Amino acid sequence: NKEHILAQKEVLTPIEYEHYVKHLFDIGEITKELYIELSS
């Protein structure tokens, strides 16, 4: 869920976080809207 993803932002580097969010989007775990929101 969104809270879990945002928690990852605390422990990952910005680049790792971007890759993580992109991966979730690629596998269909999150919607495009959520992907855009989380990567901003």
Rank of each mutant, 00 (worst) to 15 (best):
N1D: 15
N1H: 12
N1W: 15
N1F: 15
N1E: 08
N1C: 09
N1Y: 14
N1P: 09
N1G: 07
N1V: 06
K2L: 14
K2R: 15
K2S: 07
K2T: 14
K2Y: 12
K2F: 15
K2I: 10
K2W: 11
K2A: 08
K2D: 05
K2Q: 09
E3I: 14
E3M: 08
E3G: 08
E3K: 09
E3R: 07
E3Q: 12
E3L: 09
E3H: 14
E3T: 09
E3S: 13
E3W: 05
H4T: 13
H4E: 04
H4Y: 07
H4R: 09
H4L: 11
H4M: 15
H4N: 15
H4V: 15
H4I: 07
I5Q: 02
I5Y: 08
I5W: 06
I5M: 06
I5H: 06
I5A: 04
I5G: 02
I5F: 05
I5R: 02
L6W: 04
L6Q: 09
L6G: 04
L6C: 02
L6H: 07
L6K: 11
L6M: 13
L6N: 05
L6A: 08
L6D: 03
L6V: 08
A7N: 10
A7D: 06
A7G: 11
A7T: 08
A7R: 13
A7S: 10
A7L: 08
A7F: 03
A7I: 09
A7Y: 03
Q8M: 14
Q8S: 08
Q8W: 05
Q8I: 10
Q8H: 07
Q8K: 14
Q8Y: 05
Q8P: 02
K9T: 03
K9E: 03
K9N: 04
K9S: 06
K9Y: 05
K9A: 07
K9Q: 09
K9L: 08
K9R: 14
K9W: 03
K9V: 05
K9P: 01
E10L: 10
E10V: 11
E10Q: 11
E10G: 13
E10K: 11
E10M: 06
E10S: 14
V11A: 15
V11T: 15
V11K: 14
V11F: 12
V11E: 09
V11D: 06
V11M: 14
V11W: 10
V11S: 11
V11H: 11
L12H: 03
L12G: 02
L12M: 15
L12Q: 06
L12E: 01
L12R: 05
L12I: 05
L12W: 04
L12F: 07
L12V: 04
L12K: 07
L12Y: 07
T13K: 07
T13V: 05
T13A: 10
T13Q: 07
T13M: 06
T13E: 08
T13P: 08
T13I: 04
P14T: 15
P14Q: 11
P14D: 15
P14M: 09
P14W: 08
P14S: 12
P14R: 11
P14A: 14
P14L: 13
P14K: 11
P14Y: 07
P14H: 09
I15D: 15
I15W: 11
I15A: 15
I15M: 15
I15T: 15
I15F: 12
I15P: 13
I15Y: 08
I15L: 13
I15N: 14
I15H: 14
I15K: 08
I15G: 14
E16N: 06
E16Y: 03
E16S: 04
E16I: 03
E16T: 02
E16G: 06
E16R: 03
Y17N: 01
Y17T: 01
Y17L: 02
Y17W: 11
E18D: 10
E18G: 06
E18N: 07
E18L: 11
E18T: 06
H19A: 14
H19N: 15
H19P: 01
H19D: 09
H19S: 13
H19Y: 15
H19M: 10
H19T: 11
H19R: 13
Y20G: 01
Y20M: 12
Y20Q: 02
Y20A: 03
Y20W: 13
Y20P: 00
Y20D: 00
Y20R: 02
Y20E: 02
Y20K: 02
V21F: 02
V21D: 00
V21K: 01
V21E: 01
V21Q: 00
V21L: 12
V21W: 02
V21H: 00
V21P: 00
V21I: 11
K22W: 11
K22N: 12
K22F: 08
K22Q: 11
K22H: 07
K22G: 06
K22R: 15
H23Y: 14
H23K: 12
H23Q: 12
H23R: 08
H23E: 15
H23A: 13
H23M: 12
L24F: 03
L24G: 01
L24K: 03
L24T: 01
L24R: 01
L24I: 04
L24Y: 02
L24C: 02
L24E: 01
L24D: 00
L24H: 01
L24S: 02
F25W: 13
F25Y: 12
F25R: 04
F25H: 05
F25Q: 03
F25P: 00
F25I: 02
F25A: 05
D26M: 10
D26R: 05
D26K: 07
D26Q: 08
D26W: 09
D26V: 09
D26G: 06
D26H: 09
D26N: 08
I27S: 15
I27N: 13
I27E: 11
I27G: 09
I27A: 15
I27R: 12
I27M: 15
I27P: 00
I27H: 13
G28F: 03
G28R: 02
G28K: 04
G28P: 00
G28Q: 05
G28V: 01
G28I: 01
G28S: 04
E29G: 09
E29S: 08
E29K: 10
E29R: 06
E29H: 13
E29N: 10
E29P: 00
E29I: 13
E29Q: 10
I30V: 05
I30M: 05
I30A: 00
I30K: 00
I30L: 07
I30Q: 00
I30G: 00
I30E: 00
I30Y: 00
I30R: 00
T31R: 04
T31E: 09
T31M: 05
T31N: 10
T31A: 08
T31G: 12
T31W: 04
T31S: 08
T31F: 03
T31H: 06
T31K: 05
K32H: 14
K32A: 11
K32S: 11
K32M: 15
K32I: 12
K32T: 12
K32G: 09
K32L: 15
K32Q: 11
K32V: 11
E33Q: 10
E33N: 09
E33K: 07
E33H: 06
E33F: 04
E33I: 06
E33S: 09
L34Y: 07
L34W: 07
L34R: 04
L34F: 08
L34I: 07
L34M: 14
Y35E: 02
Y35A: 04
Y35F: 15
Y35T: 01
Y35P: 00
Y35N: 01
Y35S: 02
Y35V: 03
Y35H: 03
I36P: 00
I36A: 12
I36K: 11
I36D: 13
I36Q: 14
I36M: 15
E37T: 05
E37H: 06
E37W: 07
E37C: 04
E37S: 06
E37V: 06
E37I: 05
E37G: 03
E37K: 04
E37P: 00
E37D: 15
E37A: 08
L38T: 02
L38Q: 01
L38A: 03
L38V: 09
L38W: 01
L38I: 12
L38E: 01
L38H: 01
S39A: 14
S39H: 04
S39I: 06
S39D: 06
S39T: 14
S39F: 06
S39L: 15
S39M: 13
S39R: 10
S39G: 04
S39N: 13
S40Q: 13
S40I: 12
S40N: 12
S40P: 06
S40D: 11
S40A: 14
S40G: 13
S40V: 06
S40Y: 10
S40M: 14
